[in-house]
Nucleic acid binder design. Structure first.
Lengths: 262, 262
DNA sequence: CGCAAATTTCTCGTATTTTGAGAAATTCGC
DNA sequence: GCGAATTTCTCAAAATACGAGAAATTTGCG
C-alpha cells in the first residue's frame, strides 16, 4: 500500500509508534510496540522515552502509555491559527441558525485518501445528529460530504484513488472501469450541490457544496446533515441554496488569507 | 531552564520543530526553521519532509508549512479514548444544567508546570464566558482552577515549581520564601473547594475542586466559571457544594478505568 | 512559451548515532 | 523488605545523519 523502497529514517521509525495508537487499542507498552515494530526491547523503550519527552505520549502507569497532552495543545494551536476554520465558523453558525429541524453543519477536507471533519456546529436537541466530528475520517466514495470533494480533486489524485480503491469504487456504484468512474465524477461536477441519503449514517441526509481556494483547487466542503429523510423537494432546494452560498462566502473570506509570513 | 547534559537524539531534534509553531508564528519555512535550530538548510528540509510524511506538518504552499492534520486526528483519538474525559463529560453537563446564569464548566489537568484545559461545557448565551478551552494552558499560580491542583501536587513537583517560578510565586502572593509558599499550599489544602475572582480573566469568578486518582494523587480539577462577581455568600456556598460533588462523582466513575490492557 | 530567481532535492564522504544483547538497576505489589 | 516485573545502562558494530555545494525543480513574469 504505502512505503516506497527507501529506508526509513530514525525519526520516521519513532513517529511510526504514534500510528499504533488507535480507537481499538489506545494503550501500548514499550514491549508490545517493540515486538510490533520489529525492534529490540531497548529500542522500544528509547522510542517511548523520546515521545514522552516531546509530550506526544504519556505514561499512565508502568507499562501503559497513551497519546500525550502535547497533541491536545497542538490541536488547539491549529484551531486557533487555521484561517479556513476561523472564517468558516461564523458562516457555519449562521447557516445552522436558518434551520429549525435537528441538524449539524460540517466543515470537511481531504486527507490521505479520505475525508476528515474539521469542525461541526450543531443545534443539539438531545440525540446527536452526526457522529462526524473534528478529526474523524470517512470513506472517500460515500456521502455528499466526501463526494463533492472527490469530484473536484486533481486528475493525478483521482488516478491514484482509482488505483488504490477500485473495489470500493465499484461497490459504491461509481463505476467498474476508470472511464465510468471519471464519467461519474464529471456528473457530480455538474451539480453545484450534492444531496445524498443514508450513505454514511442510517437515516441521515447530507447536503454538501465544495469549497475552492484562490487557485480554484478544492480545499474542502460545507455540509448540512439532517435527521429526517422525509422532506419535500422545495425544502431541500432551499437548503441547497443556503449551503451553496455558505461555500461561496467561506471562499470570499478565506481569500484574504492570514498574511502571515513564513 | 530545561535540557540536561545529554545530547539530543535525532528524533528529538526533528520533534523540536513542532515547538516552533506558536500562536504568534503559526507558519514556518524549512529555511527559517533551520536557522533557528542551527542546522543546515538541507537538514531543515529533511526534518520538514519527515514531519510532513507523518502528517504532523502540512505544506500550504512553497515555503509555508503549518501543523498538520495528523494532529487533528490524534486529538480525536485522545478524546475518544480518554477515560477521565468520557466519564467526566456527563457529570459536567449535569453540573452546568444546575446553573441559571451564563457559565462554563471546565475540566483541567497538570501539564509541564502549567494547567491545561481538557474540556469545556458551556451554556453559551452569546458572549463567551471563558476563553479557557481544550488545549489552552494557564499559569500554575493564579485562578482557582490552577490553585486546587497546585495545592495537591507531590512535594517533589512543588519543590521544582518553587525552583523555576520563585518570582511569579512571590508576585501572586503565595509567598516569598519556600516555607511561606508551603504554608500557602497547606492553607489551600484545608479548603475543599477554592473560589477566586479576576485572577485569570477580568470579572470572572472560578469555583474549583481537585480530582484525585485511586492512589490519592491529584489528576486535575473541575470548575465553574461565572461572569458575575456579584453573588451572595449563600449562592456561592451552594455552587461549592455542587462542584465538590461533581469532583467526587468523576472520581468514582473514573475509578473503574478502561480495563484496556497495554 | 521560456527565462531567471527562488525553492527543493540530491550526492557523497565523514562523523555521529542508533541498535541489539544482555547486565545492572529500579520500581512496585504484597 | 522480598521477589518479579519493568526500565535503564553498557558497549562495540552497523547504520545513518550531517553539511556543503551541485543539480533539479518549481514558480513568477514578461
Amino acid at each position: 500500500m504505502s512505503g516506497n523502497g527507501r529506508r526509513q529514517t530514525s525519526a520516521e521509525k519513532v513517529l511510526g509508534v504514534l500510528t499504533l495508537f488507535t480507537a481499538e487499542r489506545p494503550v501500548w507498552s514499550p514491549e508490545r510496540a517493540a515486538k510490533r515494530l520489529n525492534v529490540s526491547l531497548a529500542t522500544g523503550y528509547r522510542y517511548f522515552n523520546t515521545l514522552v519527552a516531546a509530550g506526544l505520549l504519556e505514561r499512565l502507569q508502568r507499562n501503559r502509555y497513551v497519546l500525550g497532552p502535547a497533541i491536545v495543545e497542538l490541536d488547539r494551536q491549529i484551531r486557533d491559527a487555521d484561517p479556513v476554520l476561523r472564517e468558516a465558523r461564523p458562516v457555519m453558525e449562521r447557516l445552522l441558525a436558518r434551520l429549525r429541524e435537528p441538524a449539524a453543519v460540517l466543515l470537511c477536507r481531504y486527507y490521505r485518501e479520505m475525508v476528515m471533519c474539521i469542525h461541526q456546529e450543531t443545534n443539539k436537541t438531545g440525540e446527536p445528529v452526526s457522529s462526524y466530528e473534528r478529526g474523524a475520517r470517512r470513506p472517500m466514495f460515500r456521502g455528499s460530504t466526501s463526494k463533492v470533494i472527490l469530484a473536484h480533486l486533481p486528475p493525478r489524485t483521482i488516478a491514484n484513488l482509482w488505483r488504490d480503491h477500485r473495489r470500493e469504487i465499484a461497490t459504491t456504484g461509481l463505476g467498474t472501469t476508470f472511464e465510468e468512474f471519471k464519467a461519474s465524477l464529471r456528473a457530480l461536477r455538474q451539480e453545484k450541490v450534492n444531496v445524498s441519503s443514508g450513505e454514511v449514517d442510517e437515516g441521515r441526509m447530507g447536503i454538501s457544496a465544495p469549497i475552492f481556494d484562490a487557485n480554484r483547487r478544492v480545499t474542502g466542503s460545507v455540509s448540512i446533515v439532517l435527521l429526517s429523510p422525509r422532506m419535500n423537494e422545495r425544502a431541500i432546494a432551499r437548503l441547497c441554496t443556503h449551503v451553496y452560498s455558505a461555500a461561496r462566502e467561506i471562499e470570499r473570506l478565506r481569500g484574504r488569507g492570514t498574511g502571515v509570513k513564513a
